[in-house]
């Protein structure tokens, strides 16, 4: 066996698995990707917002999230052509404007913006909001485009893919197995649970935005992320449930209300898709890399898959190849 080029099986083609594939292949691994669903992005990652917002997340996430994700925007920009670095905007309806002060107290790296400044950032919001926060260094990416770009990158680095009906590979033939299968791995990761998230994909030709907007609300915070071709992702609910059934009316109302409050032009938007995913989560809602012999588990991405998976992928690569110089 050629020790300089370990044979690595990566199971799971979501954001944890795809970032691991690329990080491991870049360090010289002979990487094989396998997903039992037979395609890239069959799980929760497909429905992610794709916001690369280390500083906004500090509002409710532990400090480690910000610390571990500051490099994430650069990591994605190095690997995916379509990373948009236009920052992100935090707004609140007039009656909930107090929420902006709370958000500001708990975050950093923003500038306070008034009505005119909001309008210069987002002309379509002219006159609609008088107060907000602008996080200039943040970015966003379309998760579906990004996962495909990582897949292409894996192949260009000489990696292999077992998708679309391929039989399960013989794990004994690999030096390492990196399991990134989310809740599928819960039998081996006993504190893992699913947190239900629901999202909408809208097409709206009447509104254009250049960056994600977070609409604050004391109970129901929602974000609206612009994507190419007049698409908008609106998300996402957080329910402590492992129900995989269709979107509830309550959730749909909450998401649509936020979009409509942001701009009434969304009234005529087409609802193209409703998406439901279960976010794999540990009790502290922080991802981790764990090891059991030749098995590495990268799991527990919770709502931070695109933000935190690059750091976890590099951590897994460090375990296999030793610390990078």
């Amino acid at each position: 066996m050629n020790r300089s080029k370990p044979r690595i099986l990566v199971k799971g083609a979501g954001v944890a698995g795809m970032t691991a594939c690329v990080a491991l292949a870049e360090r010289g691994g002979d990487v094989t990707l396998y997903d039992e669903a037979g395609r890239v992005g069959a799980g929760a990652s497909w429905f992610a917002g794709g916001m690369l917002a280390p500083w906004c997340e500090a509002e409710s996430a532990p400090e480690e999230v910000t610390a571990q994700s500051i490099g994430a925007v650069d990591w994605w920009a190095r690997h995916v052509p379509q990373v948009i670095r236009q920052g992100s905007l935090v707004l609140a309806p007039a009656r909930d404007v107090g929420e902006i002060a709370r958000f500001a107290r708990r975050t950093s790296h923003y500038t306070q913006v008034n009505g005119a400044e909001i309008a210069s950032l987002e002309p379509d919001l002219d006159g609609r909001f008088q107060k907000g926060l602008f996080f200039a260094q943040e970015g966003h990416v379309d998760p579906r485009v990004a996962l495909q770009a990582l897949f292409d990158r894996l192949l260009s680095l000489g990696g292999h893919a077992l998708l679309a009906g391929a039989p399960a590979p013989d794990e004994a033939a690999f030096d390492w197995v990196v399991d990134c299968t989310g809740l599928v791995a819960r039998d081996r990761l006993d504190t893992l649970r699913g947190v239900r998230g629901e999202m909408l994909l809208l097409r709206c030709r009447d509104v254009s935005l250049h960056r994600p907007v977070r609409m604050l609300h004391p109970r129901i915070p929602v974000y609206i992320v612009p994507r190419a071709n007049h698409l908008f992702m609106v998300g996402a609910t957080m329910v402590e449930s492992e129900d995989t059934g269709g979107m509830t009316v309550r959730s749909m109302l909450e998401l649509l209300n936020a979009a409509y409050t942001l701009h009434p032009g969304f009234a005529e938007a087409e609802i193209l898709e409703t998406g439901i995913g279960l976010r794999p989560s540990y009790p502290d809602n922080m991802p981790r890399v764990t090891q059991d012999g030749k098995y590495l588990f990268i799991n527990g991405m919770y709502r931070h898959g695109f933000l935190l998976s690059p750091a976890r992928a590099e951590e897994a690569a460090d375990r296999i190849f030793g610390q990078a110089a």
């Binding site: 239900r196 329910v239 402590e240 449930s241 492992e242 129900d243 059934g245 509830t248 309550r250």
Partner: peptide, 10 residues
């Protein structure tokens, strides 16, 4: 909300 369908909040 957690148990909209069955005991999915377990």
């Amino acid at each position: 909300r957690e148990a909209a369908r069955e005991k999915t909040g377990q």
